[in-house]
Design a protein around this nucleic acid. Structure first.
Lengths: 347, 347
DNA sequence: ATGAAAGCGCTAACAT
DNA sequence: ATGTTAGCGCTTTCAT
């Protein structure tokens, strides 16, 4: 932080240079360049002279100056949980595409389920106001968001149900419904009656929903839930998947199908099952959740609930830009994106 | 782009407000806040009064204004090939961490091997100057970079050998050396003499290096290269891996080991081999390149050459900040990061 | 040690 | 239709 050399350099060519070359005033140059925004009209001729000068000098407008003056940054910020989680890839890509299309750049940060990092993100945006914010957070509070909105005027969209701020749109995957669908499908289309479940501790909000869907599907099919068919892992890891599956398959009457609330755990479960000498799907069918890339690579490939990342990204970006551009002004909206079952070899 | 509502809102609290509350001039507030940078000294008392006012008003410095004035953005930009490529995850994370630590935010974009997108990235940075740029590009030319540097004064670091600009540091993985090491290891430690190779068309620069390493290892071991042992895929896909492996294993004397220049292809190759009734590693050993997450998940798990993403990120960020902060001023430097062989079940 | 003032490059209200 | 002018919030001379 110390030795920062003072850059004397400043923009090589400014509106002033363009104006001089074109023989007009600087504000005329601004008008020509920002045409269409309820500006007074510009004569064909000046407009052309200006554009020529722009071309000739290789002029680029300075967005920093523009932002300072117009209180509009042409930037959006996005915080994801962890960019190495494949779930975010399609979302980030779609948001990026839409943002670029609209002329916005994208600032990005990882939250890492770390309160410090998440707060740092907020603080960064208090100092460098952006026009819109998309976040997937675990610790950011409604008050943090409120401060952000009040101070910077940014539009905010969240991917987390726990955010209740009245001006923040929420976008969710329908985890409960998708789980219900998958389990129902195992029962009705694949004729399983002994369906096990591998979940995740309740501190993880999605875990609860996915388990709820599983239970509802059993109930709806008049299958009584068995405690020993519900295994709960400590975290989303291959090892936890293997361990919980071992418990399940060591039961006197092991399930004939298992719904696993995450692909990573499902992969651990599959490898464990094969190691124990069972066949998949003949002895036991396995369904995962997320459709990570590896789901197609493993053998047997994994039947799983796939997100629609592009759709999620599209809805996030749309909701955000509706607010940024003033096409929607109003209270919190909640959007749900469905999932689809991708049938592969494990069922 | 049309309906943008005019934000009248401006920073809620500015240096002026702080100054007024503290009973000092605005420039004094600035001095207090930017202490240490060859500023004249400030009296204990004023300093304290100012800090109190800052606290009391909840003041945040406006980085946009600061940037405009100081010609320093406290932002770095990073372009990766494709954020869904796991290769970049650790790199991005490390760069982010170091940047945040130094007080910089990170703008990000995907190049997608698309000339348009890559150019868009450059154009965006001409308008919104950042202090440093890290890029992994395929089409950006030395002239593009030169323009960027001349116009914005940004420091630039590249992950691509083809960039020859005299002020751009280059960071490379030692693909040739790593390939050599892996093949040599197959020959010497695993006693293979018939080692096949699955590569990628020469338009992909890494492909060339990985093949070169393979050939050099054979030569060094006095094994004559066989044309039919070298299969070249059209792209990095599971399908191409399977197809090329089928060709290899259909040979009258198939290789007893195959070095595949990418994990994705290696996974295709493994599944194909198993489908053909061969055992791995008993009939044929397989080594991949990259160590993507799925390499651990598949069965048999994949022996592969692993990048050191954190190390790559660290070196990229260090080189960049050395230039940004003026701790290094001078010509292009080239850094190499080694890889390591991760032995798993496929060998 | 502190204040006054200039100006970074731009937009927009106000003139003409 | 175009020019003049006043800032946006900050850093940094230049005074004192």
């Amino acid at each position: 932080m110390e030795h920062r050399p003072k850059k004397v350099q400043t923009s090589l060519v400014t509106m002033h240079d363009v104006a001089k070359l074109a023989g007009v005033s600087q504000s005329t140059v601004s008008r020509v360049l920002n045409i269409g925004q309820s500006q007074p009209l510009i004569s064909e001729e000046t407009s052309e002279r200006v554009m020529n000068a722009v071309e000739q000098l290789g002029y680029f407008p300075n967005l920093t100056a523009r932002s300072l003056r117009s209180q509009q940054s042409l930037m959006i910020a996005m915080m994801v949980g962890n960019i190495s989680n494949p779930f975010y890839h399609g979302i980030v890509q779609t948001v990026e595409e839409i943002s670029h299309y609209r002329g916005y750049d994208m600032l990005i940060a990882n939250g890492y389920k770390n309160p410090e990092k998440e707060l740092r993100f907020c603080r960064a945006l208090m100092r460098r106001p952006v026009d819109g914010i998309i976040m997937s957070s675990d610790f950011i509070t409604d008050e943090n968001i409120d401060q952000l909105i009040k101070y910077t005027g940014a539009a905010v969209v969240s991917m987390n149900e726990y955010i209740k701020h009245p001006e923040v749109d929420i976008l969710l995957s329908s985890d409960e419904g998708a789980s219900y669908m998958a389990v129902k499908w195992l029962i009705e289309n694949k004729h399983h009656r002994q369906v096990g479940f591998i979940g995740i501790v309740d501190t993880h909000p999605n875990g609860k929903l996915r388990r709820a869907g599983y239970r509802r599907a059993l109930e709806d099919s008049d299958i009584s839930a068995r405690d020993d068919y519900e295994q709960i892992g400590a975290d989303y890891t291959v090892e936890q998947g293997a361990q919980t599956m071992r418990a399940l398959m060591s039961l006197p009457t092991p399930p004939t199908a298992v719904f696993v609330c995450s692909d990573i755990m499902a992969i651990g479960a599959i490898n464990q099952t094969l190691d124990m000498g069972f066949r998949i799907p003949e002895d036991v069918a396995v369904v995962g959740f997320d459709d990570i890339p590896a789901a197609q690579f493993i053998r047997p490939s994994l039947t799983t609930l796939a997100q629609f990342p592009a759709e999620i990204g599209r809805q996030l970006a749309n909701a955000l830009f509706e607010r940024i551009e003033g096409r929607y002004i109003g209270p919190k909206r909640t959007f749900k994106v469905p999932l689809r079952l991708v049938e592969r070899q494990s069922t």
